[in-house]
Design a protein around this nucleic acid. Sequence first.
DNA 1: AAACTAGTCAACCGCTAGTCA
DNA 2: GTGACTAGCGGTTGACTAGTT
Length: 320
Amino acid sequence: MVRTPCCRAELGLKKGAWTPEEDQKLTSYVNRHGEGGWRTLPEKAGLKRCGKSCRLRWANYLRPDIKRGEFTEDEERSIISLHALHGNKWAAIARGLPGRTDNEIKNYWNTHIKKRLIKKGVDPVTHKSISANLQDIPEKLNINQTIITSDDDLDHNKKMEKSARFLNRVANRFGKRINQSVLSEIIGSGGPHATISNNTTTVTTSVTVDSKSDKSTSSSFTPTSNLLMTANGNATSSPSAFSESSISDRLMYWDKEDNIEFSTFLNDEDFMVLEESCAENNEFMKELTRFLQEDETDNIEMMPANEHQDSFEDIDNYFA
DNA sequence: AAACTAGTCAACCGCTAGTCA
DNA sequence: GTGACTAGCGGTTGACTAGTT
């Protein structure tokens, strides 16, 4: 299929920087007729520009809701979190930052954040430490070499990976149903942090989850590709938000004020407590709990924890 | 003061997905 | 099913500016 070029120089269409007069024409036209119809807009608005150029000028510069000026620290943190989630999907990232355009975020990333991350020793593509990435090289080169040095390490890594997968699945399943703004808020605050109880070690690390192998059925929420997790030897419970009854018991969320409770089943291997950042995101947990309660009242049976061999299968079945 | 370099960001280009006749 | 068309996206370019030599 042969396409006619959008902006043909022989038609005498102007390129380059926009003049204030052009901005004025475009703004008043869009204000009168609304966005859209970009192909025919230039002629109607009396502009010697291609429609694409007009759309871009409007979207990136003239739109009234565009926020100008320096990015705040919060915005920067959000960009980093969202980039970890979406990669170079600038439009997706921009949706999480009202008033900022994809172009602006892209430029800011390339000129500021990227450099800063590299300076801190963080790979801006993978969001892992650069030294950690060096350890990945054998894997990337398909060399059969393991960097796990002991059974304990292997076991610990498996636990963390499974726990990360669990969180991913919760996000994927509930992403379809939970208010997007609540999810954006969580992502904006750095994503859910999980504390894994393994009773032996205290480690801070990040776990990458293969979202391809975790088949997501979510149509409205992009699967998490990275989850930041804190593996903490001291099994902690957040004040008022989470409590644990026993290592093989259920993950509990209980809000005293609203008198609501969330629980799901985890065996001792997958046991985890969502703390700190999730506690900050009480809204998310409350909403999650409400959905569970609704489901329970719809007679969806929840099986006791000790009958579960594979908690992920159970979670899949439950949320399916 | 002039030349050069590096950083920034608006705008462009090429491509893809979605829609419609 | 096919092709024309539109809108939108991500990567790249180049003009402009500020800092340095």
